[in-house]
Simulated assay, not measured.
Amino acid sequence: MRVHLVVNPGAGDGMDGPAVVRLVEDAGHEVVGTGAADPGWERSLAREVELVAAAGGDGTISAVLLAVAGRGLPVGIVPLGTANNIAGDLGLPTGDPAGAVASWRSAATRPFGLPVVDGAPGPRFVESVGLGLFAELIAEADAADPDEGVDEARERLARLVERAPEFDVRLAVDGRERRDRVIGLEVLNIASVGPRVVLDRSTRSDDGRVTVVPIRAGDREALAAWLRSPGPHAAAVPSVEPGVRAVVVEADAPVHVDDEVVDADRVLGVTTAALVSVEVLSPSSSPTTG
């Protein structure tokens, strides 16, 4: 295939651009363009491109998916990041860039839906929108070790879980209104967020739905224990609401969209009614995030 390669050489795996180009060419593909995921990079796409490849972590892959939406081009992924949550959602091998590229030849395309977020910068997101806990984790990242791995980030999150303040939230989930008191709330488009924290294994990016996950003070002990000794099951957050088409959230709490803390309105909305999908290469029809 003729491939345009978008590379983040600073991702967790540390491969530079030329090394990724060689990886793709050694697999029998032709690299017809390269660059970073800088604003407007998609305008440099050549007409003969058959595949856009995103080589990097979740931030780079998200930028590529959002930029390519509506252009009719499939996306292949070379996971080079630390968490690689999106690659896990697609069933791609993580920690094995060559294996990920090799999987393109036999992979099928599947839709990756991009829901709409209203009341915060977007207008679409890839992984999750959340308030409280995970937004605080992202905000702390600037002071963390730049070489921090998944285990270290999970320990940092566990400590945050133990001290995170509660806040009140008003919710309307598919029109059903309620009040809650939480330390965090996530609206998921994929199964895992942050340092590979699997909040709901049933969440899929190809079904036109999102999952609402309120994290309450009563979940602190079990969630912190999972973060320090994660097993094959999802993290211990019992109140998971999958299969949601629309949610409105009102709260005073820090907000993140994917991996960025953002300035947002007090009232946020997420909907899949105007969903746009990107075709991505996936070797599996089921998420295998772990």
Rank of each mutant, 00 (worst) to 15 (best):
E155C: 10
E152T: 14
L157H: 00
R178T: 12
R179W: 11
R163V: 15
A191F: 10
E166I: 07
E162G: 00
G149N: 12
D151P: 02
G175W: 09
V150A: 08
D151F: 10
I183W: 04
R179V: 14
V173M: 06
V161H: 05
G175D: 04
D168G: 15
L160I: 07
V187L: 08
D151G: 11
R163N: 08
V182R: 01
E162Y: 00
L185V: 01
R154L: 09
L171E: 03
P146Y: 10
E162H: 00
E177I: 03
I183C: 01
R181C: 10
A191Y: 09
D174A: 03
D147K: 14
D174K: 05
A153K: 11
R159E: 13
R163F: 08
L160K: 03
A172C: 00
G184T: 04
R154Q: 10
V173E: 05
D145E: 12
G175T: 01
R179L: 13
G149A: 09
A158Y: 05
I183K: 02
D174P: 00
V173W: 06
D147Q: 15
R154N: 07
E177T: 10
R170H: 14
P146T: 11
R181F: 10
P165R: 15
D174N: 06
G149H: 09
L188A: 05
R176L: 13
A191Q: 09
R159Q: 11
A144H: 14
S192H: 02
L157C: 05
E155H: 13
D147P: 06
V173K: 03
V173P: 02
V169Y: 04
R170L: 14
L171N: 03
L157A: 07
I190S: 00
D168I: 12
R170I: 08
R178V: 01
G184L: 05
D147N: 15
E155R: 15
D145H: 12
V193P: 06
R179M: 11
R170C: 10
R181L: 09
P146V: 10
G175S: 06
D174T: 01
R156G: 11
D147C: 12
I190H: 01
L160Q: 07
D168N: 10
R181T: 14
I183R: 04
R179E: 15
A164S: 13
E177C: 04
I183V: 12
I190R: 00
R156N: 08
R154T: 05
A144R: 15
N189K: 03
R178N: 01
V161W: 03
E152F: 12
L185W: 00
L185N: 00
R163Y: 08
D145R: 13
L185T: 00
L185H: 01
A158K: 05
A172T: 02
A158M: 05
V150R: 12
E162K: 01
R163Q: 12
E186N: 09
E162Q: 08
A144P: 06
A153Y: 07
E152D: 14
N189W: 06
E162M: 04
V169L: 08
A191I: 02
